[in-house]
């Protein structure tokens, strides 16, 4: 498992390096925006990563609530995966907002605007930060149940974020993908997007596996410490 993880990391870094090379030197610059458009090759993959990892968090939260009484051991594993994927989702969301903000500064002349896409995204980020804070500061056995419920309600914001540029007039650019006729990237630009999408997803899988492993170890150590305390009493 250890060897596989390190091989995975090497493969991930190779894909990311190639993604960087393709994004910077291979694909052409956008006719209107020039090189600034290359931010897209980091911006879009992080949003896809965020969607994937928040979805994993949602599935794990539902499974945790469903099996927590029947199979506590497996429920703890799903809870550890829920935590790991939520943390990474928050990180990806932060990267997406930061790269978007830098693009906005260059393209619009402002770092931030309260339009529907940006505002719903900020709310999404705050919901999952609240989820992580709840996990940290609520004590007792109900903490995991509370966190799972927050995660399920929090996920409801993701479709709103996705649809915001379709439902409302926003300053954010119109949907590039699945936005109807005359939308989408030029095929010559797609390799940069695919390489970076693959690279950042592989990176996410590596980091989540490491975080999951740490959380499982911590859970087992906590269980063992509780058993020792009970035996001593």
């Amino acid at each position: 498992m250890k060897l596989f993880r390190w091989l995975w990391l090497v493969a991930t870094l190779a894909v990311l390096a190639n993604g960087f090379h393709v994004a910077m030197y291979v694909v052409p610059a956008d006719v209107n925006q020039g090189d600034l458009s290359r931010i897209l090759y980091y911006h879009v993959p992080t949003w896809c990563g965020m969607g994937v990892f928040f979805s994993i968090n949602l599935i794990c939260s539902i499974v945790f609530l469903a099996i927590r009484n029947r199979n506590p051991e497996r429920a703890l594993k799903t809870d550890a995966l829920a935590l790991a994927s939520a943390e990474l989702g928050v990180v990806y969301c932060l990267v997406g907002m930061t790269t978007g903000s830098i693009w906005g500064r260059a393209a619009w002349g402002i770092w931030w605007t309260w339009d529907a896409r940006l505002t719903t995204t900020l709310v999404l980020w705050l919901i999952y930060v609240a989820y992580l804070l709840a996990r940290r500061f609520i004590s007792g056995p109900e903490m995991r149940v509370m966190a799972a419920v927050i995660a399920i309600f929090g996920f409801a914001d993701i479709p709103i974020v996705y649809m915001s540029t379709r439902w409302w007039r926003t300053q954010h650019p119109a949907p590039v993908f699945f936005g109807g006729p005359n939308t989408g990237l030029d095929p010559s630009m797609m390799p940069a997007l695919w390489w970076n999408m693959a690279g950042w997803l592989m990176w996410g899988i590596f980091v989540v596996s490491l975080r999951y492993s740490a959380e499982r170890r911590q859970q087992m150590a906590d269980e063992r410490a509780a058993t020792i305390a009970l035996e001593a009493a």
Partner: peptide, 11 residues
Amino acid sequence: HRHLVAAYAAA
């Protein structure tokens, strides 16, 4: 391109 470099570095 300073904005591009800043965005990639921030990520």
